[in-house]
Amino acid sequence: MAKVVLVTGVSRYLGGLYARRLSTDPSIERILGVDVVPPKHSIGRAEFVRADIRNPMIGRIMAQAGVDTVVHMNVIATPKDTGGRVTQKEINVIGTMQLLAACQKSESVSRLVVKSSAAVYGSSPRDPAMFTEDMNPKTLPRTGFGKDSVEVEGYVRGFSRRRPDVEITMLRLANVVGPSIHTAITDYFALPLVPVPLGFDARFQFVHEDDATAAMILATTGPPAGIVNVAGDGFLTVTQCTAIARRPVVPVPLQAAGVIGNIVRRSGLADFSSDQLTFLAFGRGLDTSRMRSVLEFEPHFTTRGAFEDYARHLRPAVPGVEGVGEVVSDAAGGTAAALSRVFDRIQP
């Protein structure tokens, strides 16, 4: 039973939301929220501790407080929020290594909960329809957050071998969306004109920010569950998402998507990596059987419901125009088909 909980990344949106929700549980005696900068939002009754998980000092904090449960929320998805890709990787990979080293030395830590990502499965045309937790990716993520998440999970597995007495739950969250969270995928669908890979209409799954937080709370206070996929029921395609978000689309050949992604990234409107662009072309599906049978969690929002709640808080791409997404997406579908036929003719 968790009594003294240490939460990393408490100054980030999802970490702060988690700390506030955990604060309502009377069985938790003390909550320590750790981050390098003070939070701008409420963290409930959590005590903020200014510390860098890349520094061995985190071990002394655990020992002094008698921490029994560590919740690692500080695996950062977007480099623009940290000052760049180098800092992002240091926090994600080096920070996780130092945190796990402190956990390994701790005599009081008995549970570790890690917020991971479905990005560890990568995305390719050879993927299965649904990834179970026991499956390996057909193509490993090569850059960015996905690659970091693979490394983080590798370090967690190594820790579990060295400390088999520590209960571990690792949640592989689908893309998190909601009215307040900002990620690469929410920034993408907020673009005034959404570039979509020509000839593709990938399937997506989403998890609402409230459901992601609730799943992390259950992983903290419930029985250990190992590795668990977390996603809302159902799927949405790229064109369905753009229609719901009321966004016009522009089809671009996949070969040129990297150039478009670089332009968008440099503009500061959204973060793009080559792996994210591949994801937009091929999508990903998660089997959530363990979420229900082992974690015993049932999301409140379906994939569609989560995305619709996010989209309700978006400004229209064209002020005063509703339904523009449906009209332009239909037109884009016809344009994409026509362009695809042209490309087929000119290919050797």
Rank of each mutant, 00 (worst) to 15 (best):
P223D: 15
P223A: 13
P223S: 15
G222S: 12
T221I: 15
H208P: 06
V207K: 00
H208C: 07
A215G: 10
H208K: 10
L218E: 14
F235K: 08
A214H: 07
A212C: 02
A214G: 11
F206S: 02
A212V: 04
D211L: 13
D211V: 14
A214R: 14
T213Q: 09
I227V: 15
R203C: 06
D210V: 15
V230G: 03
A214Q: 11
P224A: 13
D211R: 05
A219L: 13
T220G: 08
R203P: 13
L218D: 06
A215H: 01
A215N: 03
V230M: 04
A231L: 06
V228D: 03
T213A: 15
A215W: 01
T213F: 07
G226D: 12
A219E: 06
R203S: 13
D233Y: 11
G222P: 00
T220H: 02
I227N: 01
T213R: 11
D233Q: 13
R203F: 12
N229C: 07
A231Y: 07
V228H: 02
F235P: 01
V207A: 13
G222W: 01
A212F: 07
H208N: 12
G222K: 05
D210M: 10
H208S: 15
A212S: 11
P223C: 14
A225K: 01
I227D: 01
A212H: 04
F206D: 00
N229F: 05
G222T: 03
D233A: 15
T221Y: 08
Q205N: 05
A231V: 13
A212N: 04
D211W: 10
I217A: 12
F235A: 03
T221D: 11
A231Q: 08
V230S: 11
V228R: 01
P224K: 13
F204K: 03
I217L: 12
A225P: 04
A231R: 02
T221N: 11
M216G: 10
D211C: 14
Q205R: 04
